[in-house]
């Protein structure tokens, strides 16, 4: 496939990847052979499977555990399937929070302007210069009952700024269009104009950015989990599986490779979709 063909099929390939990963996360757990936190010490960590180094049973070593066990004797397939739920929930809900906030702020500041516009855009500048991960780990450490929802909200609250900027610019542009001015002169209320005329026009860039946001949310969640500040154990996530598996990288590389591959595929899929959508809208980028 040439460069052209590849470029044109990126949205499709990305979509297929995203759908596949989402399917694994949504439907997967129902087909999971075991619970993600059940320990099978005897079968997966017993002497028969391991030899002497405390290496868990590997791929195909024990029937009923196709991908083997992890360092605590838990079924890797079950954890991969359940872990996807955490990563993708964060991706979707976190992006939803960011997109909603970015849309509201962007449309308000773009349409109304004035003092609030200046103030909120200053806030955007301000938040863009904060060290993201440093703030995120501080929040995760102090929020006493850190769960998946608080994680989504936090990541959303830290990621709406770029979207707000773009929506604002687009709103200002749409506001100046003749048919919008006509609607205004006919007495349509600002709320009506924003939702019937502005919103449909800004949705294009929002889809593009939302897709890239989902990718960066997956990366952020996995990084936090890798640092031990994500969703609390024993709930599995791809990032925390990687953290637990890395000490055995030399003996059981699949404990790092499998969750790593899932993260990579998900992020790759979302990014591919975002890039493809952007180029479809603005061919100049090619």
């Amino acid at each position: 496939m040439g460069w052209r063909g590849w470029r044109d099929s990126r949205v499709l390939v990305g979509l297929v990847l995203v759908v596949a990963v989402v399917a694994v996360a949504v439907v997967g757990p129902w087909f999971s052979p075991h619970a993600p936190d059940t320990q099978f010490r005897e079968q997966l960590l017993g002497n028969g499977a391991l030899g002497t180094r405390g290496i868990p049973a590997g791929i195909g070593d024990v029937t009923g555990h196709p991908l083997g066990g992890d360092t605590l004797g838990r079924d890797v397939l079950a954890r991969l399937l359940h872990g996807g739920r955490v990563s993708l929930t964060v991706a979707f809900v976190g992006s939803l929070v960011a997109v909603t906030l970015g849309l509201l702020v962007g449309m308000y500041t773009g349409y109304v302007g004035g003092a609030w516009d200046r103030l909120l855009m200053r806030l955007v500048d301000l938040m863009l210069s904060l060290p993201f991960l440093l703030i995120a780990i501080a929040v995760q450490a102090v929020v006493a009952s850190s769960n998946i929802w608080s994680l989504c909200i936090m990541l959303g609250l830290l990621s709406w700024m770029t979207l707000a900027r773009i929506v604002r610019a687009k709103t200002q542009q749409v506001k100046g269009l003749e048919y919008v001015q006509a609607a205004r002169s006919m007495g349509a209320s600002p709320v009506r104009i924003v939702f019937t005329h502005v919103l449909p026009n800004v949705l294009g860039p929002v889809w593009i950015l939302g897709t890239s946001l989902a990718a960066s949310m997956i990366l952020a969640e996995s990084a936090l989990s890798y640092l031990g500040l994500g969703v609390a154990p024993p709930t599995p996530s791809w990032g925390s599986m990687l953290r637990e598996g890395q000490e055995l990288l030399g003996y059981a590389p699949r404990l790092v490779l499998l969750p790593g591959l899932m993260i990579l595929l998900a992020v790759f899929g979302f990014n591919l979709m975002g890039e493809g959508l952007r180029d479809a809208q603005d061919p100049r980028h090619g």
């Binding site: 990084a223 990687l242 790593g260 993260i263 990579l264 790759f268 990014n271």
Partner: peptide, 20 residues
Amino acid sequence: TLLMSFTFLMISIPGFLLGI
């Protein structure tokens, strides 16, 4: 194509995975 695919992979790979 080759160079841009490489950069695309680098954008999608988690930093800690590459580090490990």
